[in-house]
Design a protein around this nucleic acid. Sequence first.
DNA 1: CAAATTGTTCGAACGTTCACGAACGGTCGT
DNA 2: ACGACCGTTCGTGAACGTTCGAACAATTTG
Lengths: 126, 126
Amino acid sequence: MALFHPTPEQFAIENVLTALGNPTRLAVVRDLSDDGEHPCGSLVRGVAKSTMTHHWRVLREAGVIRQDPSGREVMLTLRRKELDARFPGLLDAVLLAAAEAADACAEAQAAAAAETAAVLPVAAPA
Amino acid sequence: MALFHPTPEQFAIENVLTALGNPTRLAVVRDLSDDGEHPCGSLVRGVAKSTMTHHWRVLREAGVIRQDPSGREVMLTLRRKELDARFPGLLDAVLLAAAEAADACAEAQAAAAAETAAVLPVAAPA
DNA sequence: CAAATTGTTCGAACGTTCACGAACGGTCGT
DNA sequence: ACGACCGTTCGTGAACGTTCGAACAATTTG
């Protein structure tokens, strides 16, 4: 009873876009974008295991990730080559956009931290 | 009470992906990709008006389209430049993928039609 | 002014998605 | 064999998305 993986011909653009259109899943794909193999457990983000299982399934059934058991873990990989062949440029554009969004978020946090430091100079580092 | 349009800084990648991850909306964006101005009514696809209003709102609030009243119509335009500036390559990749999907669909229909013609030669044209 | 046209708003219905905890089934170490 | 570990499955509930029809507002046409 192996996990279902669509073939590239079965990829549907709307499924891929829907899969990537969720912050949790997009963050996972971003973590996977180094093209390494990651166990499920190394990408959990503040939600229950069963919730992540749901997200893995959405990503897998859209063709975005591969998920294959290895021992007692399940290894995740981004299906980058197949995705690129089927939807050229899409994954790169999404990853670029996601990186930009993450940067903007980091900058906003840094700005907020700087403002806090200015308002509360007592807490400012030497 | 003009319709709300986000500024490019307000665009969020997850909103854009979610907006494009629906077949009806993706078809609308495809129709809009000639960069012309189209009235709402020229892009209706077999669903109720109120349903299309919903889809237009989703696309507009994600920053994908601009929607401005002109007379008793509402003209739609793709916000291609702003989208490209914010998420480089994304729209092109999605449109390319959508075109490929549409082609595959057309081929499938053609193949089905050919098969029907073979099975029912009586209905075949001279 | 009255009627037709265009699209929006509203409320309701229906299905799907997202989230959780509990229970389960493999796999590894002891 | 036993227990710990990893992830899935199941059932549940809240939230969301999609669809519709009816009613509405604005505008053009007769």
